[in-house]
Computed example of a mutant assay.
Amino acid sequence: MADELDELIGFLSDRNPQVRREAVDIVRGLTGGEDGLRALAARADRALPALLRLLASAAGSGAGEAAADSLVNLSQDAALAARLVALGAVDAAMDVVARRGGEQPALARSLVMMLVNLTHVASGVAALLQVGDEKVQGLYVAKLVRSFCRSSSDSEEQDTFEYVASILVNISKVEAGRRILMEPKRGLLKQIIRQFDSTNQLRKKGVAGTIRNCCFEADTQLQNLLSLAEYLWPALLLPVAGKKIYSEEDRSKMPLELSSALSHEREAVEDSEIRQQTLEAIYMIVLQDDGRRSFWSVNGPRILQVGYEDEEDPKVMEAYELIGSLIQDAKYQVRNISKDKAFAGQTFT
């Protein structure tokens, strides 16, 4: 078996395109199981470079898609992901997506999925951010955001760039990534926030996680965040506003983007992680004086008060309560919203 696998890997570099195609199809099948992955990982020194070469050389043959699928499966292992980064997999993926993504959406989708795996390791994040080269730093990220925001689909199978949402979460976990996303001249965060209206849950969850991560910079980047308030507050507050119709009095104290959305019943955001992430983002913003003032200006306390009344998830409730405690500690006037819930609703006089 070992000799057969070595021979198979050799066929990945055969001069005959048909032989390469048949070999990579078999490799793709092997990566679908633990035994195959383990065997190929033991031969990573030969298998990984051969698969990367197929990405660039197999335009239109189908071999590129099979190679990309194989690399997606292999790169789920952190050690193999790091080796792929060292072999230039990030550059290779971005190059192929740029040149052939429009003609081969399935190939582009697989390569984006591979980039998700590669950005789970620090070296992959650095490579995608192009850290160390000021002339091109952030270029790959800008290209991915542009593709992410220009393409969408109601059918998840056809949404070529939906997994960019997960890449954005990964790179926004580090300061360098947040800095690139929040740089005003690039305008990337604004584009990302506007994707929160997507019906695609992967996109929505990725946007929520990215915003939340960027809010870790609220102490130094608050004005950049608040410059996007028109888009930021609806993205953060609507998921935690509950399903009730808000009174005309409540809505009169909100900007149009919020008051319009809260003037009718809505479908609840079922994903509790999204609700928790948006609340954590709000918390980091209202830690700052200007952030609290902005939160108050959109009637945010009332929105959280109403939303909390219908919340049942303990972790999400705790996130609501943390904001309530923060504002209470900041000496804002508070009142209990119910006898059996600990969150304090806020009103200002």
Rank of each mutant, 00 (worst) to 15 (best):
M254D: 07
Q277Y: 14
L181K: 09
K253L: 06
N299H: 15
M254K: 10
R275S: 01
E217W: 00
L262T: 03
N299C: 15
T220W: 04
E248G: 05
L256A: 12
R292T: 02
Q276G: 10
I193W: 09
L262P: 07
L189Q: 13
V269F: 05
I211L: 01
L228P: 06
I245C: 15
Y308L: 02
Q191Y: 04
S247F: 06
L202K: 04
R212S: 03
V207L: 10
A319H: 00
Q201A: 12
L287I: 14
D271I: 12
S247P: 08
N299Q: 15
G209M: 04
L226N: 12
S260C: 03
V269G: 01
K204M: 02
Q305I: 05
A218Q: 06
V298D: 11
D271Q: 14
L189P: 09
L232H: 03
A261V: 10
A268T: 12
R292L: 04
E321D: 14
Y320F: 11
Q288I: 08
E311T: 14
L226K: 13
I192N: 01
L236W: 00
Q277V: 05
Q195D: 04
L225F: 09
S252K: 04
F216C: 13
R179T: 09
E217S: 07
Q288H: 10
D250Y: 03
S263P: 15
L228Y: 13
E248D: 09
S198Y: 10
E267Q: 07
A319P: 00
G307Q: 05
Q191G: 14
L256F: 13
E217F: 00
L202I: 07
I274G: 01
L258Q: 01
D290T: 03
G300W: 11
A281Q: 06
D271T: 11
G300V: 11
P314A: 05
E265I: 06
D310N: 08
N224Y: 09
E311L: 12
L181Y: 12
Y246H: 06
D197A: 15
L228R: 15
E248V: 06
E280F: 12
